[in-house]
C-alpha cells in the first residue's frame, strides 16, 4: 500500500482521498462494540483499494449492525431497509448500475432468523455484493434476546438458557451455493480487512460471517461470540492477503508450497499462506468438513472457507446493455411510435 504524503498534508491514497473521506458520522454504538471495529476495517479496506466512495453503495437491514453503515463511507449512497429483507432491496437496486460495489451489512438476527429466506435466495442468485453478517449471537438493538446463532445452553441475562442448536451462517451460505464464504473475528482486524478487500473484488456474492461481540448483552467468555471466547478458540485456516494486480508475489513461498493463490476477475489475487493443515478453499467438500469439525471441536474457524471465482453472477445472466440501466433515456426505453401497431396486432 502506497500512501502519498505531500508537504506535510494528510496522507492520501492513489486517488487522492484521505481516510477521513471514507468515514461516516459519529457512531452511536456502545463503546467496544464489535460492529464498530468492522466499520473501521471497511474504511481501511476501501481506502486501501482506492475505491471512489460514490461507487460504493451500502445496504442494511435493521439492528445495531444494520445501523453501522452510517459510520463509514459517508459520501456513498445507502439504503437502510427492513429487518431481514435487505437482500431483495440490494438485488433490485443492483440492476440499475452494475459497475458499483455493493456493501451490505446485516446481523445474525437480521440474516439467520427473519431474513433467512432472502439470505439464501440472494446466495443462490450469486448477486454481486459483499454480504457482511456482524454476528454477535444476540439481538443487540432489542436488548439481549437470543438469536438463531446463539450456542445451545448459553445463559442469557434475562432470557435464560438457549434451548436450540445454532444456525451456522457459513453452512447455510454453502448449502445455498454461495461462491465466496468466509468467517472472521472482529478481534482480528487485519484478517477482517483483507477478507473485505478480497470480497469486494470477488465477482459474485461474498459472505463474511464476522463474529462481532456485543459487549453489552453477550460477552460471556463461555461463548465464541465474546472477545475472550473468540480469541481463545480462533483457528485460522491460513494467513490471508489481497494482492492487487500490480503488486508482486514472492516466488519463494510458491516453491515451498505454503502459498495458495485465488485469481480474481479484476486481475488481483487472494493469497493464502498455509498455517497448519493444508486447506483447499476451492473444495466444497472440505468446506463442509471443516465447518463440521469446527462445530464438534468448538473452534472458531476463520479464513476463506470456500471460493469459486469463476461462477457467473446474477447480472451475467441478464445480458444487459453496457450503459447503466438507470442512465438510459426515453429513446432507449420507449419503443418508437410505429411499434404501437405491433402492440395492437398482438391484441386480436
Amino acid at each position: 500500500m502506497i500512501e502519498h504524503v505531500v508537504d506535510g498534508a494528510k496522507a492520501t491514497n492513489q486517488i487522492g482521498l484521505t481516510r477521513a473521506d471514507y468515514r461516516g458520522v459519529q457512531s452511536t454504538l456502545c463503546p467496544g462494540c464489535g460492529h464498530m471495529s468492522i466499520a473501521n476495517q471497511i474504511v481501511n479496506a476501501c481506502y486501501e483499494l482506492n475505491l471512489v466512495p460514490e461507487q460504493v453503495v451500502k445496504f442494511s437491514g435493521i439492528g445495531c449492525s444494520s445501523k453501522s453503515p452510517t459510520y463509514f463511507l459517508g459520501r456513498s449512497f445507502g439504503f437502510n431497509g427492513l429487518h431481514g429483507r435487505m437482500p431483495s432491496l440490494a438485488t433490485g437496486a443492483s440492476f440499475a448500475d452494475t459497475s458499483v460495489e455493493i456493501l451490505a451489512i446485516s446481523g445474525d438476527g437480521d440474516t439467520a432468523s427473519i431474513g433467512m429466506g432472502q439470505f439464501k435466495h440472494c446466495m443462490r442468485r450469486n448477486t454481486p455484493m459483499v454480504y457482511i453478517v456482524e454476528n454477535n449471537g444476540v439481538y443487540g438493538l432489542t436488548k439481549g434476546q437470543y438469536s438463531a446463532t446463539t450456542e445451545q445452553g448459553i445463559q442469557l441475562r434475562k432470557y435464560g438458557k438457549t434451548k436450540f442448536m445454532p444456525v451456522d451462517i457459513c453452512l447455510e451460505a454453502l448449502a445455498s451455493n454461495a461462491t465466496f464464504v468466509a468467517r472472521s473475528f472482529a478481534g482480528d482486524p487485519k484478517q477482517v480487512k483483507e477478507l473485505i478487500k478480497a470480497a469486494i473484488k470477488h465477482s459474485g456474492v461474498a459472505v463474511l460471517d464476522i463474529i462481532s461481540p456485543c459487549v453489552t448483552f453477550h460477552n460471556l467468555e463461555t461463548s465464541l461470540h465474546s472477545y475472550v471466547g473468540g480469541k481463545g478458540h480462533e483457528v485460522p485456516l491460513h494467513d490471508i492477503a489481497y494482492v492487487p494486480l500490480l503488486d508482486e508475489i514472492t516466488v519463494d513461498d510458491f516453491e515451498t508450497g505454503t502459498i495458495k493463490e485465488v485469481a480474481l476477475h479484476d486481475g488481483g489475487h487472494i493469497v493464502l499462506k498455509k498455517l497448519g493443515e493444508d486447506y483447499d478453499p476451492f473444495s466444497r467438500a472440505q468446506a463442509f468438513h471443516i465447518l463440521e469439525e469446527a462445530h464438534r471441536k468448538n473452534w472458531l474457524v476463520t479464513g476463506l472457507i470456500y471460493v469459486d471465482p469463476d461462477e457467473k453472477n446474477l447480472h451475467d445472466l441478464f445480458n444487459l446493455v453496457d450503459t447503466p440501466l438507470n442512465r438510459l433515456k426515453e429513446e432507449h426505453l420507449r419503443p418508437p411510435s410505429d411499434m404501437i401497431d405491433v402492440a395492437n396486432q398482438l391484441m386480436q
Binding site: 439504503f79 431497509g81 431483495s88 432491496l89 440490494a90 438485488t91 433490485g92 437496486a93 443492483s94 440492476f95 440499475a96 448500475d97 440501466l325 438507470n326
Partner: peptide, 8 residues
Amino acid sequence: VGAGWAGL
C-alpha cells in the same frame, strides 16, 4: 423498491 430507488 430497490430498483425504483436506484432510478429504474
